[in-house]
Amino acid sequence: MALLEIKDLQTQFFTSAGTVKAVDGVSYTVEEGETVAVVGESGSGKSVTAMSIMRLIPWPPGKIVGGSINFDGKDLLALTDDEMRSIRGRDIGMIFQEPMTSLNPVLTIGMQLTEPMIAHLGMSEEAAMEKAKKLLGMVGISEPDRRLAQYPHHLSGGMRQRVVIAMALACDPKLIIADEPTTALDVTIQAQILELMKDLTRELGVAMIIITHNLGVVARYADRVNVMYAGRIIESGNASDIYHRPRHPYTLALLKSVPRMDRQREAKLDPVDGQPPDLTKLDGGCSFRPRCRFAQDHCAKSFPALEDIGGGHTSACFEKDNLDKEVKDVVG
């Protein structure tokens, strides 16, 4: 059985401008020890999906209105707040984008790092401090004694993110959700942090959901990829299939939009026109239709369901078999 199974998740925000269907029927699974990437642009619902798994959607205005989230044999949506609190930070670790806002500026690194161990595992302060030193060593921070007594503002951005990773690992979680973990960091520090996360998750057998807009990061680190657009997963599959045999016009458009460092510039970029849709004004048809080069009349009538096209590769597009010509342009 999968470690995490999300079924038909629906999270909505009730605002004065109308109901925002931020997540609209998302389903996916994460097996033990695997790294799954969720890619999409701002507003595609990738972060809201993650916050829904942690049940951190603020009410008002947000609410999970439907679906189920099964984690390690438990239905997370049926748990009480107390029960959920005992899972958060213990069985599921979190790494957010901006380490300065996810660390408390007035508490020492030591206090923040030991707190989850004392609260969740019932460790004594001394034992927790000992483990905290080990954790800092694991994430490549030298002089752990000195660091434990310091405050977040003493550390650089990369160092802070290492502390956040150490905190996520503190209680031996089964799953780590990393939401844009390296977006705020420089590229060489990004490479360090991602390599560290990859090594640690493999070594410790921790599953990971990595949420990012960076297609390069996905290509380097993920086993499987879910592509989101306007609150839905529109394509998923293993990384190689998504990059070399995309079967959704949006995925194709994303790949044609990214400049590549390894190629001489041959032609101009070929991005999709227009902008993502207003999530309060979605109709019954495919939400990518207005920007889609392959759209037909039937695309307006109903939303295409995710269909398996073999090898665990799924696509939600009526025209998925008609993309060949453009796919060749991308793959070369």
């Binding site: 590229v187 060489t188 290509a219 380097r220 990059y243 070399h244 390894d262």
Partner: peptide
């Protein structure tokens, strides 16, 4: 060289074949 090596390329097959030499330390 190290800077270019750190940039991930959006192609999983190419990424598998690259030696990821990580630059040590910070600025």
């Amino acid at each position: 060289r190290l800077l270019l090596n750190a940039v991930p390329i959006p192609d999983p097959d190419i990424e598998k074949g690259r030696a990821h030499e990580i630059i040590k330390g910070e600025i």
